[in-house]
Design a protein around this nucleic acid. Structure first.
Lengths: 267, 267
DNA sequence: CGTTCTTTTGATGATGCTCAACTGGGGTGG
DNA sequence: CCACCCCAGTTGAGCATCATCAAAAGAACG
């Protein structure tokens, strides 16, 4: 991978511009055949799911551009005016809120094929921050143009509703997790959740990389970084997982599922 | 109030039927002028928000019926097939999930003007249970008919999206609450939240009834019933609230807000 | 190769849970 | 009408879980 990433929040460095002027690059990605929904590997999971060729082309036409987001830079921030939804083409993001006392709460980790920005529709302003966990790429979907497409393509509308509803469901399960699971359960549930999402994307369900820091995991799960570290060690000692830095292997999924369900605890 | 409530989950008792046969009652409520959206006191908060007379009439036509739900009975259960959304006309509900180990997590308390069932769109099955906290009344909104209306009334569609998005936002703030607030903060935030919702409905923001048990509050906030009880006592001793059973008065909202924000704790 | 950030591990302590006993209000039946 | 019961809530004592503080070890980066 030798891509140049242009961040939108932080001004592009002269260095990067020298390689690829902004205008030419925008042009390039728009014309790029691989950028079309129909050619995108995520199209069965993403917004265009279930659309025919024609409808997918219509959707393609309204999609603003494919935008690169460098690691650690913001896709949007709390309070930013809402104009676009973002579909992740490639990479990983986290969303987080800042509470009045200044500390953050990670509200989710998103991966390719998932939508970002749904929470902003209600007030036309973003309610959380979205940050790339690695160099990533998103499709910019102007929401007003998407809305006008809904009239033409009922299938698209229906699927959009499903995706919003799914987000509600996802958050409910996090509430369940934070509300009445012990640390061990939360962490096992987290691992199983990642596993199934990678599996749905055609990746290994047992071996993957953690794209987020221990601290981010802890914050998401309502635990401290130290607790996460101890849990990793404990699970490793039990022989349930193999860990080396961010590299992770699930050695005993059934047991992990049992732990997540609260049917088993480790000594 | 001398209404007879018919529960859908639990068969109507002969006693109630004697007073009002089911058929006649259904007829009565459908014809009832007060049942129309335009006459409903919640129409600025609920689905028809911002619609003109004509569009509101169209919406009225697709709304199946106004259904009464008796206290403690289920409006729907996990796994029930999804056909309707429900708008609360009157009363209060709670939604809760059951996790694999059998204990429940209350995911929300809903009041008049709010929609129930949004989480079911994603899979065509309900993901949580909805239970009436008191004798209540809902409007049954067949989702497929609502979807066909979306094509005709863009305003309706747009507002529907806002409501779904609002639900996502609401859940994110619960995640924030469960993820990194201490007990005191959680409870203060809960009280302030109720207060503002009652205020938006034209009720007193300082004096209201808790429609849920201490246990339900605790479950929602990730705390035990004992903790809730202690918090009530503590807040009372501080002079921030007045409590008598379910009757509640907020005596010092600014301080409660400060506590919720984590800017103040009590000794 | 040193600096810096992230992670790990250990020791201690506080918050909130568990268990238990008690109180009070509301409904029921004698 | 009163006595009783039952359930929801309150209060107390002890304890477990996880947070906090601290320090060392290991990656990552220039």
């Amino acid at each position: 991978m030798n891509l140049q990433y242009i961040d939108t929040a932080i001004p592009t460095t002269p260095h990067l511009q020298a390689f690829e002027p902004a205008a030419r690059q925008a042009d390039a990605v728009t014309r790029d055949a691989a950028a079309r929904c129909s050619a995108c590997s995520m199209h069965q999971l993403c917004l265009p799911m279930g659309l025919g060729e024609l409808d997918m082309d219509k959707l393609d036409k309204i999609i603003g551009r494919r935008r690169k987001v460098t690691k650690d830079s913001h896709l949007y921030r709390v309070g930013d005016p809402f104009t676009n939804l973002y579909a992740i083409r490639l990479g990983h993001f986290k969303t987080h809120q800042i509470n009045p006392s200044g500390d953050q709460q990670v509200t989710g980790f998103q991966m390719a094929g998932e939508l970002l920005g749904l929470d902003a529709i209600s007030t036309d302003r973003h309610h959380c921050n979205a940050v790339a966990l690695e160099d990533s790429e998103v499709c910019e979907i102007p929401f007003s143009r998407l809305e006008s497409l809904f009239g033409e393509i009922p299938t698209l509308l229906h699927h959009f509703h499903r995706m919003m509803s799914q987000e509600i469901t996802r958050e409910q399960s996090v509430m369940l997790l934070l509300g009445n699971m012990r640390a061990e359960q939360r962490f096992a549930a987290f691992l199983i959740n990642l596993s199934s999402r990678y599996s749905a994307r055609g990746y290994s369900s047992t071996e993957f990389q953690l794209r987020m820091t221990r601290e981010e995991i802890g914050n998401y799960l309502g635990l401290t970084i130290e607790s996460i570290s101890r849990l990793l060690s404990k699970f490793k000692k039990q022989g349930w997982i193999r860990v080396a830095n961010r590299e992770l292997e699930l050695l005993d999924q059934p047991t992990l599922k049992a732990v997540a369900a609260g049917m088993q605890t480790c000594a």
